[in-house]
Simulated assay, not measured.
Amino acid sequence: MDWYEPDTRWNLYAKSREDFVNKFVVEGKFHNNVPEDIVKSFETVTYLLAHSYYHWPMFDEAMSKATLIMELVIKFKAKALNISLELPPNKKGVIYKKRLVDVIDEVFEIKYLKFLYVEFDRARNLRNIKMHPEKHSFMGALGMAHANAQLIVNVTNLLFSEKQILENITSINDNLKEQLSIFKNGIFVLEYNDTKILIVNIQYSKYLEEISNKLLMLYIDPIFSNTKEVFIDKKYPEPLIISLNSFNIENGVLNGIDLNNKPVKIYKTDKPENIKRWYQYANEIQSIDQKYIQTFIQINSSPALWQMEKIIYENCWN
């Protein structure tokens, strides 16, 4: 009987059971507005993740269960919004259920929920893949079930947040798009972790809040010192994500405090040596085949999004 023997395939990813739990087991951290049925359903996801330590394929089953929960989530939200799950009776008086995709569209037609559609759609696409597989296979750790579980926790909590909070998030994100546009395609200094980094772009920003926490995440494009190694040799660094729990943008300068209570500052630089490095970097980029640039963007942006979900999961929910 080997039911309680660790699956040796995890040796590639974790040094011990405790290390495995820290890296791959996701608990359902939900606020009080999330329906109890959803909370209970997610407990099974956590157990499947935990017990996959003894049987690798259960990790995939955890993702299957997690993506099924999204159907439950959207139906509960629709009911809360008084959106019917059924079509009007036809001529014969027969009542049919609406297609799930139509219910989803009705929910996200609501203005203060629109910003969540992209994240929800990521989870829905995962559900479609799991429900309609092309072949029987096990992805294990590569399937990112733990990251998908964090995404689902985040989306669920946000969907069931108070209307006022969601309206604030929508409004602030809209304002930030304009405010942060000054940090697009130029040469800037990022003061962070007691060092200064030259950056060329704030590629993406995401602001969230809940009752007691506010969080602004910035996905930043730095100037690489080893440009050809990064793009051609594919020695890709970790995405540069800065997370702030307070911030202010004034007179072309962003000041903030990060999650470790350390100051962060971003501002434009006109120092000749920085301008020179910017032009040099631009020439280096132009000399590289675009296929390498596009590959880097695709590969770097995916972990950036997952990293943001992890930050949200760890810092926004009790």
Rank of each mutant, 00 (worst) to 15 (best):
V107M: 07
S16Q: 08
N213Y: 09
I241F: 02
W317E: 08
K111P: 00
L68S: 15
M308P: 00
I172P: 01
L100H: 07
S161L: 12
D105Y: 01
I211C: 01
A123H: 00
D174L: 12
W10M: 07
I297R: 12
I187M: 01
N283L: 14
W3Q: 14
K228D: 09
L158E: 15
T46H: 12
L49I: 10
A62D: 06
T170D: 12
S64V: 09
M139P: 01
L12A: 13
F108Q: 03
L259S: 05
E209Q: 14
Y117W: 12
F42M: 01
V118A: 04
T170H: 08
L180S: 03
L113W: 10
K291N: 10
T295G: 04
I297A: 14
K271S: 14
M1D: 15
V101E: 15
V94S: 03
I110W: 10
P237G: 03
S287W: 02
E119L: 05
V264Y: 00
G28Q: 02
N11S: 12
E36K: 11
N201A: 05
Q307L: 13
G93F: 03
N125W: 06
E5N: 13
V118Y: 08
P263M: 02
L85E: 02
F115P: 06
I129V: 09
P88M: 04
Q307G: 09
Y279I: 09
N201K: 05
D2L: 02
R277M: 15
M139A: 11
N315Q: 06
I311N: 07
V21S: 07
N201M: 05
Y13P: 10
E209P: 04
Q286D: 11
E27R: 12
K271C: 05
N185M: 01
L87F: 09
F59C: 03
F138P: 00
V21Q: 10
E162C: 01
E61K: 09
Q307P: 00
T269D: 13
S246Q: 14
T195W: 02
H146I: 05
D121E: 07
E106P: 04
E27H: 14
A66E: 04
F183A: 03
E210T: 13
E314V: 02
D121S: 02
T67C: 13
N226C: 02
I220P: 04
N175C: 10
Q298H: 10
F188W: 06
P89H: 01
V253W: 07
N274A: 12
L48K: 11
I165A: 13
F183W: 03
F115C: 00
Y117S: 01
I110D: 04
I95G: 00
I299S: 08
N318P: 15
V253H: 06
F76D: 14
D102Y: 03
E134K: 05
S41P: 01
P89Y: 02
V39H: 05
M63W: 12
Y279Q: 12
A50H: 12
G140R: 04
K98P: 09
L159S: 07
I288T: 10
E309R: 14
K114I: 04
N201I: 05
Y267F: 14
E210M: 11
E178W: 04
I182L: 11
D221F: 02
N315R: 09
M308V: 07
K91R: 07
G140K: 07
E119F: 09
L198K: 10
T156E: 09
P89K: 02
V200D: 11
G28V: 06
A62P: 07
